[in-house]
Design a protein around this nucleic acid. Structure first.
Length: 556
RNA sequence: GGUCCGUUCGUCUAGGGGUUAGGACACCAGAUUUUCAUUCUGGUAACACGGGUUCGAUUCCCGUACGGACUACCA
């Protein structure tokens, strides 16, 4: 339903209308008559692209953050722009040691390179907001002197009391806003002398934005188009906290302006406060330099309710962090994609497709290809459920794309952890035979242990069905042939076996699974002849001997 | 509750006033593989609902439902 109230405000007040129009980003055109795609395209191509990823070091960087960083990075690279990493550590209470390092390592692992920022420096250093602390107050003060912000001295108790009072009076969500501020302790209600006195006495205070009573605040989001919010819905947000630190809202606007950020690509959770940021740009006189906003759809839990949160890690059986993480305070552990065996290229490809698609049927994209194909216009609007199956599929694709030489390295790494010696030659063979069935690098070892050790036990179901007199006859004879053979490889093994079965008049197919059982302990697996080649003649003989002694024929 | 955002197969999505609504993952079946996996072929499966507008709506508009975010001196 159209809002007659706001309409009448506009139509009845040309001055206000004109004022409201100044909120409109880079546009004097009535939003109703713009062609969103066209304008969006032009605007973001024409400005020097400078984007930032600005996480808060409050714990492990979760996978949604990695995607946000990725989209920023893709836009930067595509436009020969600059990727900036800024650390938003203005909340000292939530600071977690090690988190910043974790963020750095994670980005490095997935292949996102930082051009400017924490760890690499740059022309707008420092890039850690805590180190920029002295810079913010001047802007807050400017807002105060120009009448767009004010000092507030209310204590926590007083704020609580106000909220309680309003709730009791039937107000659903009490706000510190254009109405209630007149009943609170601030530089708008207190006599000037008293304000000065309080400030001089060192009374704790915050700076709050003086949000106008009746304004339509609009912003043109690259993904969502025009978003309009009435200022009466925005409360007088705290800009400077009593500890002298800015809040996110101020710090983010000031830094984005100072660092000449052209595009703000961030999660949708920021959309409700974006109008507030627009207001800040306006009051600070920076409208012309305001970045383009793109609010990304959220990553949702696979089960269907709520956004993917840190709590979901491990609990749902898959990682949601790039790297393993142990919280230094709670000592809680969470597993990472890297340690779970995901390849960074696969993760990147998977993440890129969570909310974006190229509009073609191509699915496998290298970072380079993503950089070329990416476009903000093709980012979807709806929240995206996180499906680990797809991530596994991507991993498998990338794993298979690697040469046996590269894969052998993975196997050798696993073996080294187990203190198992293995020649490069054997590793290549093992990897070759296991390749089609591996999803993760660790699978080569974990699913191929029988290529290094004799079976510790035999699969009972297979034994019950396949370990019979014929099988034992063939396997015993085959054992003799192998023992007497000069050497053994897949071809020789095959011909020996065929020879034996032909002599005994027993079909090869009938006993093959029993032979596999005797050699590997399992009823299924990779090519049996290759297995024999890999484990070698002596091992074949000794494993058969052990099986012959251990396995009993089931009498029906 | 309020504000804002959203809604195409189970999942990720393409598409868009007239289409057999396309692809991928997952799932199922057949073929290949003596097994399992791979591979190949095929299959099940979707426009949330109700009103408009229109010759015609899944596509545009409005509403409803449902989902999500936000609603802190957290980001």
């Amino acid at each position: 339903m159209a809002s007659p109230g706001s309409d009448s405000v506009h139509h009845g007040d040309p001055e206000r209308l004109a004022e409201a129009d100044r909120f409109v980003l880079n546009s004097t055109v009535n939003p109703k008559f713009t062609l969103p795609l066209l304008t969006k395209n032009l605007e973001y191509r024409m400005r020097e692209v400078r984007v930032r990823f600005a996480p808060s070091p409050t714990g492990a960087l979760h996978i949604g953050g990695v995607r946000t960083a990725l989209y920023n990075y893709l836009l930067a690279r595509q436009n020969k722009g600059t990727m900036i990493l800024r650390i938003e550590d203005t909340d000292q209470a939530r600071y977690v040691p090690g988190a910043e390092e974790y963020i750095l390592k994670s980005l490095e692992w997935v292949g996102i390179k930082i051009d400017e920022g924490v760890s690499v420096g740059g022309p707008y250093a420092p890039y850690r907001q805590s180190e920029r602390k002295p810079m913010y107050m001047q802007y807050a003060q400017r807002l105060v002197t120009e009448g767009n912000a004010y000092y507030a001295f209310d204590t926590e108790q007083e704020l609580d009391a106000m909220r309680e009072r309003l709730k009791a009076a039937g107000v659903a969500s009490p706000q510190y806003n254009s109405i209630t501020r007149m009943q609170m302790k601030n530089s708008l209600t207190l006599p000037e002398d008293e304000v000065k006195g309080l400030l001089q006495a060192g009374t704790p205070y915050v700076v709050r934005l003086k949000v106008p009573r009746k304004e339509e605040v609009r912003l043109n989001d690259m993904i969502r188009g025009w978003v309009m919010v009435h200022s009466s819905q925005i409360d007088d947000k705290v800009l400077m906290k009593s500890d002298g630190m800015p809040t996110y809202h101020l710090a983010n606007v000031v830094d984005d302006y100072l660092m000449k950020i052209s595009h703000v690509i961030r999660g949708e959770e920021w959309l409700p406060s974006a109008p507030l940021h627009v207001l800040l740009y306006k009051f600070l006189g920076w409208e012309a330099d305001m970045p383009q906003f793109a609010h990304l759809p959220l990553l949702l839990k696979p089960t269907g309710d709520g956004k993917l949160s840190k709590r979901d890690a491990d609990q749902m059986g898959f990682p949601i962090f790039p790297l393993d993480w142990t919280d230094p305070n709670t000592h809680e552990k969470a597993s990472g994609f890297r340690e779970s065996g995901y390849l960074p290229e696969a993760l990147v490809n998977f993440l890129a497709f969570l909310g974006w698609n190229p509009g073609t049927t191509q699915e496998i994209f290298s970072m380079e290809e993503l950089i070329n194909a990416f476009s903000v216009e093709r980012i979807g609007k709806a929240g995206t459920k996180f499906d680990i199956h797809k991530a596994q599929w991507f991993n498998q694709q990338y794993l298979r794309g690697k040469s046996n030489d590269e894969l052998a390295v993975y196997l050798l790494e696993s073996l080294a952890k187990e203190n198992i010696q293995c020649s490069h030659e054997k590793a290549i063979k093992v990897v070759g035979v296991m390749k089609e069935r591996a999803t993760f690098p660790k699978d080569f070892w974990e699913q191929g242990k029988f290529l290094f050790f004799p079976p510790a036990s035999f699969d009972e179901a297979t034994a019950g069905k396949k370990w019979n007199e014929d099988a034992v006859k063939v396997i015993s004879a085959f054992r003799e042939e192998v023992a007497n053979a000069a050497s053994l490889d897949a071809t020789i093994a095959k011909s020996l076996l065929e020879q034996v079965t032909a002599n005994l008049g027993i079909g090869t197919g009938k006993i093959l699974q029993a032979l596999r059982l005797s050699l590997t302990g399992a009823g299924a697996g990779p090519d049996l002849m290759m297995i024999m080649e890999i484990i070698g003649k002596n091992e074949v003989v000794s494993r058969i001997d052990y099986a012959l002694n251990t396995l009993k024929i089931k009498v029906a």
